[in-house]
């Protein structure tokens, strides 16, 4: 169970102060699949980063409380939160020269994985194993490949909360359809695992148990796909697109 209370995040900018997150209050029950969506710059990524502890202290001021399974996260670093079972899929995962896919997956798993364990993880994200085991995580990997390996690092860990920041960004359409399939399977197989995905994509939004709409740093709507999606689609027509566009078509 994730409980966020009165979460505010303020940064200093040239005009003085800017409120990135405004009084966010949010409970997400264990095992839920939640999609956070909203226009660019609305604070979605900041909210996700605040949960993982990825906002550097010097960047601004964060107030409020985030509890995970009853434990207060404020004051805990990234490592501490990770060890509580929280994981984070980066929008733009970093590359590691010299490090092989198997090395990264073993780090994620916290033990040296056997070949068949690597294979199981990579096949879950639709990568043909033999081609990837010894590949280095460098510029030779495409954006889509890197993104799928990023998801595999989350699957390799025994976690109870998975946060994905725009998993569709930077990947091609073909990889994207595989990706939605992957999320569907994770949700089906890991029933206790909470999944939070930040996304603009209708196909990912449609997978959710609940949609949270964020706008100008605040939660403006929560509800089921049936309740919220029509609202988004209406806005999309009247106020230009904020759905779509993230996938390189």
């Amino acid at each position: 169970m994730l409980e966020i209370r009165n979460l505010n995040y303020t940064v200093k900018d040239e005009r003085g102060k800017a409120d990135i997150l405004k009084n966010i209050n949010l409970d997400i029950e264990a095992g839920k699949f939640v999609v956070i969506t909203g226009p660019n710059g609305s604070g979605k990524t900041s909210l996700a980063k605040a949960i993982m502890g990825l906002i550097p202290g010097e960047s601004g001021e964060i107030t409020g409380s985030i509890k995970y399974n009853g434990q207060e996260l404020t004051g805990l670093g990234v490592t501490g939160r990770a060890r509580l079972g929280i994981s984070y899929g980066f929008q733009q995962p970093p590359r590691f020269k010299g490090m092989q896919v198997t090395d990264l997956l073993s780090i994620a798993a916290g033990k040296i994985l056997k070949r068949d364990e690597h294979c199981a993880l990579l096949s879950q994200v639709g990568l043909c194993t033999d081609d990837y085991l010894k590949r280095e995580i460098d510029t030779s990997l495409s954006g889509g490949e890197l993104k799928r390996i990023e998801i595999a690092t989350l699957l390799a860990r025994d976690v109870s909360l998975m946060i994905f920041d725009e998993p569709e960004a930077g990947i091609d359409l073909w990889s994207f359809s595989k990706l939605t399939e992957t999320f569907k399977i994770i949700h089906k197989q890991k029933k206790e695992t909470t999944i939070i995905i930040i996304s603009h994509q209708e196909r990912i939004i449609k997978l959710a148990d609940e949609i949270i709409l964020v706008s100008a740093g605040a939660i403006t709507k929560r509800g089921s796909v049936e309740e919220v999606l029509p609202l988004i689609m209406n806005e999309t027509v009247s106020d230009c697109v904020y759905l779509g566009g993230a996938v390189n078509e």
Partner: peptide, 16 residues
């Protein structure tokens, strides 16, 4: 060493 490399591995449970 890039900051995002360190952060990525820290999200996997490693200390800095």
């Amino acid at each position: 060493i890039a900051g995002d490399q360190l952060l990525k591995l820290m999200t996997l449970g490693l200390s800095e």
